[in-house]
Amino acid sequence: MAVPLTYYLALSAALFAIGVIGVLIRRNVIVVFMCIELMLNSVNLTLVAFSAFLGDIAGQALVFFVMAVAAAEAAVGLAIVIALYRNKQTVNFDDINILKW
């Protein structure tokens, strides 16, 4: 007996929702950042699952690019965190409201 596609999708949905909740309840910017990585990975899982079940390589190729973008995002995002910490002495989400201006 094989594992049906729905199982993979359900797992993916669960991981995505956890990631969303994590983004909303955590205040450490780096943890928020990790939650976003989790959400990206849940989507990757969906793509790989569809790719395998449909026999289409496009899904896996897209995952490859998502990984590359995630790497780029990680580099720039963490650099921003460092710059922010240097200026504000904090990485607390709740203390950063400079978007108001």
Binding site: N44, V48, M67, A74
Partner: peptide
Amino acid sequence: MLRAQLLAVLQIAVYAGAIMVLV
């Protein structure tokens, strides 16, 4: 399990390896 060998390797190398080490 989904027979995506390359992505499995990359997942460990890029995510678990590079990105998380950076974090």
